[in-house]
Nucleic acid binder design. Structure first.
Lengths: 190, 190
DNA sequence: CATACCCTGCGACAAAATGTCGCACACTCA
DNA sequence: TGAGTGTGCGACATTTTGTCGCAGGGTATG
């Protein structure tokens, strides 16, 4: 219901700020995100590897980009630089499940506008991309509770480990017993 | 915004790159660090509050600065901007025990050269300040622990609420007392 | 200047969650 | 068949929360 902007974005130089390049080697994730963004009135371009991302950037010159940190064996950080070279005005954002302070610092240095951790919903991503800091901020609904956050994260890692509870616990640095108990409990509200 | 690209800095204008301003409300820590840096041939200036830091920056115009994220009740993030105004060429670095991606992103955006977590030794700090670091992409192999995830999420929401603890607790559906306790604790590693 | 509100730090104590050990049992691979 | 790994779960010591409550600071407002 809410078309993108309504303010002062007339001069959008050569690139259009309503075309978003999504780069993620996980097709499912990329497409889900693409659809969410489309619903909000943006055009999306999905790339699942660095090369096609670069190609699309040159051909379509999107004004915005959402990039995974780890694209197969390649680094989203490197891609940041490539895209910036192609279009110095592009607004990029790193979105990752394997976040770390070190990579966040590098990402920003390389010109990323923000660095978000999965899971992040489309609204959050758009807010970061369009840098809608404050002013009229209609206070987006409450953020997920910490419990919800934890649950999501556990589920994600669990799937990465093919449901192996022991491996998940190790990877998360948590005791298997505790993980078991958490899994038995509530999917957590809110 | 910070133009991430830059290499040769011959003209070091008015400021000298061998004078380091250290800002930390913990005198013990500040002095220990100061001594370590002195041993390595640098001149140091220690400030334990925002005001004196600004004053020293104006009087001594140091070329480098190591700033704690939390200086008593004030934010090192704000100080970054003040110092940058006084001397646009200053190379600043945030050093904190309460690190988070949210604050790291802001620090870099505000012009910090790097963002390190305590404990960090003098060599590490110098390497970052003089930008001698190997610029590789150390993408994590394990996902963040649930504890880390929680910490990051809390920090993000806290930032959205301008540091208001009560509001953050409400928005997170968590008890204020509990939030306070979590914030006092150090963020978990990994 | 009194009053009302909201935020903050922190002590105290019971309730709930987690860390740890340990054991039984299933399954797979060489 | 033995070694290695995964799973479910009981039991119990520790920790971490949930709650109350109080005191102090800051800020509007009548």
């Amino acid at each position: 219901m809410t078309p993108p902007k309504d303010q002062f974005i007339h001069e959008q130089s050569t690139s259009s700020d309503d075309r978003i390049l999504i780069v993620d080697d996980n097709d499912v994730f990329a497409n889900v995100l693409a659809n969410s963004l489309k619903k909000r009135g943006y055009k999306t371009i999905v790339a699942n590897c660095v090369n096609s991302a670069i190609q699309f950037a040159q051909e379509e010159s999107p004004g915005l980009a959402v990039i995974d940190l780890k694209i197969d064996t390649e680094s989203g950080l490197d891609l940041l630089q490539s895209l910036k070279q192609i279009n110095p005005d592009i607004k990029m954002l790193i979105l990752t499940g394997y976040s770390s302070i070190a990579t966040a610092v590098e990402a920003i240095k390389f010109g990323a506008i923000d660095y978000l951790c999965k899971p992040a919903d489309a609204d959050e991503i758009l807010a970061a991309l369009t840098q809608q800091k404050e002013s009229s901020a209609p206070i987006a609904s409450d953020p997920p509770s910490v419990g919800r956050m934890e649950w999501e994260h556990i589920q994600k890692v669990l799937k990465e480990n093919d449901g192996n509870i022991s491996a998940t616990a190790r990877s998360l640095g948590m005791h298997r017993r505790t993980l078991q108990r958490k899994l038995q409990k509530r999917p957590v509200k809110r």
